[in-house]
């Protein structure tokens, strides 16, 4: 991500760069920024869950299966396992680079990316075969809304991972400089954790 402009440390008086900012917190700016962004993201999901809550609880309408429309709980369950395992490989990549293990980083990040891609592929496949559309009923709207929102986040996460993968293979990271893996990693873990909530409320409950 971007380095705060404080990285230039010319200490002369001709102002070739800003004086380094004082670090008033142990948290890194990039990590903190990502965490705050994730709070925002959680609130977006919160709003979509509000919609879910209003249809399903406040109005008390039927939930799937109804009118012959069923959700493929088992397939999505397998998909859940795929996504969750990608969190493990992400963790592998993160710990590897902390110990300067370049191979572990590359293998970890690549498998994370591929697992994420598989998840997205299965999800799209599910849309094609599920047999109802968001136009049919509010339940369909909520189903597509929540899973689609999450899918969009997987997509964003994959875009970030793609960049990290490229940079990993070019050898841009080391045990000293691994923030670029760390910060997208936090996002990826968030996307995975969010899926558990989406999966359990939409498919299981």
């Amino acid at each position: 991500m971007e380095a705060a402009s404080a990285s230039v440390t010319t200490a002369d008086h001709e102002h070739h760069g800003p004086p380094p900012a004082n670090r008033s917190s142990r948290v890194e700016a990039q990590t903190l920024g990502m965490l705050l962004f994730i709070i925002s993201e959680i609130m977006v999901f919160g709003a979509f869950f509000t919609a879910y809550f209003f249809i399903r609880v406040v109005k008390g309408d039927h939930w799937f299966p109804f009118h012959g429309d069923v959700l493929p709980v088992a397939v999505a369950g397998v998909n859940t396992a795929i996504l969750l395992s990608s969190s493990l490989t992400m963790h592998w990549a993160q710990t590897s680079i902390k110990h300067d293990n370049r191979f572990g980083l590359k293998a970890g990040i690549l498998s994370t990316f591929l697992l994420g891609l598989t998840f997205l592929f299965v999800q799209v496949n599910e849309y094609v075969h599920v047999g109802f559309s968001p136009r049919d009923h509010a339940q369909g709207t909520i189903f597509y809304g929540l899973t689609g929102l999450h899918g969009a986040h997987v997509f964003i996460g994959l875009t970030l991972l793609a960049m990290v993968t490229v940079r990993s293979f070019r050898g841009h990271y080391s045990s000293k400089e691994h923030r670029g893996v760390e910060v997208p990693g936090i996002y990826w873990h968030f996307v995975d954790a969010m899926w558990i909530i989406v999966y359990s409320s939409v498919y299981v409950l």
Binding site: I55, K59, A138, G140
Partner: peptide
């Protein structure tokens, strides 16, 4: 159909 009452929206 988030707000289409005819189809169960709210």
């Amino acid at each position: 159909n988030f707000f289409n009452a005819g189809r169960g929206g709210d």
